[in-house]
């Protein structure tokens, strides 16, 4: 059993976070979330409309045991909108978790680091546990840690792209220097992508599309849970290193031959 993940004061029983988007129907979504074993699920907000009342996720989500609901700020184009979205979300979840995401470009959906930073400052002051979705930038990650974010969520590659971890070196640096949990969010396509991220020492991964858009989401959720657990266990066990044969052309230590001075 791997070490428990803790975000702020909350211990989470799983290192796989899931989303609620792109499912064919609510029943599949609920079955899939249960199968994943997740303890943290993100949800978006939309304007109420009579016709959509039947699809309301509030009931099904509030019936899940041991699952924390984390609203996101998707749709917000700037810091002000994201803060409003977060305030609305907290009214629904009565939980401090907020996934802060601001992606003004509708095509690649890449996060706006500057607006995200501004919104994070305000939300931290308002008592939120801010989980910002960010470009994999080690300096930005530290700046967000400095102002009190609960975690950072760097992207592996663009949302929904399924390209896996395209920014390994940046993620490695973020993990190495971060004192708050690091969650890889976006870009993960397969359980092996998730395992690869976890093997690097990432604290958790957030997977939505890769599960919801699978042929069999419920079965894929189980596969991801195993991938995440395997990756974490491997990280904690300590990976064997790759062999790196040194080329001993001209010995660098001949000056030591005489032993001590």
């Amino acid at each position: 059993m791997s070490q428990m993940l803790k975000i702020k004061d909350q211990v989470l029983g799983s290192r796989l976070f899931t989303g609620t988007g792109k499912f064919s129907d609510t029943e599949t979504m609920v079955k899939t979330i249960k199968a994943s074993g997740t303890a943290l699920v993100t949800v978006a907000l939309r304007r109420f409309h009579k016709d959509s009342a039947a699809d309301d996720l509030y009931g099904p989500l509030s019936e899940l045991d041991n699952v924390h609901i984390m609203p996101n700020t998707s749709g917000a184009m700037n810091a002000r909108e994201a803060v409003n979205a977060a305030m609305l979300g907290r009214e629904l979840t009565e939980s401090p978790f907020i996934k802060l995401e601001i992606h003004p470009n509708p095509h690649h959906l890449l996060p706006d680091a500057i607006e995200t930073y501004e919104a994070a400052k305000i939300l931290v002051a308002e008592g939120f546990w801010v989980m910002p979705y960010i470009p994999a930038d080690p300096v930005l990650a530290k700046r967000l840690e400095d102002i009190g974010c609960a975690s950072v969520m760097p992207l592996g590659s663009p949302i929904g792209s399924g390209q896996g971890i395209e920014v390994r070196e940046m993620i490695r640096l973020i993990v190495r220097d971060s004192s708050i949990p690091v969650v890889v969010d976006a870009g993960i396509r397969s359980p092996s992508d998730a395992a690869a991220a976890m093997e690097m020492g990432v604290d958790a991964v957030l997977v939505n599309s890769a599960i919801a858009a699978a042929e069999n989401p419920e079965a894929m959720a189980i596969a991801f849970a195993m991938g995440v657990e395997a990756g974490r266990a491997a990280y904690e066990a300590g990976l064997m290193s790759r062999s790196r044969e040194a080329v001993h052309t001209s010995p660098l230590t001949s000056f030591l031959a005489g032993g001590s001075v």
Binding site: R176, G238, L239, S241, R244
Partner: peptide
């Protein structure tokens, strides 16, 4: 020792 020399992310160990 060989493993430590080649470790991808070396630390205390």
């Amino acid at each position: 020792v060989r493993q430590a020399l080649d470790a991808a992310a070396p630390g205390e160990k």
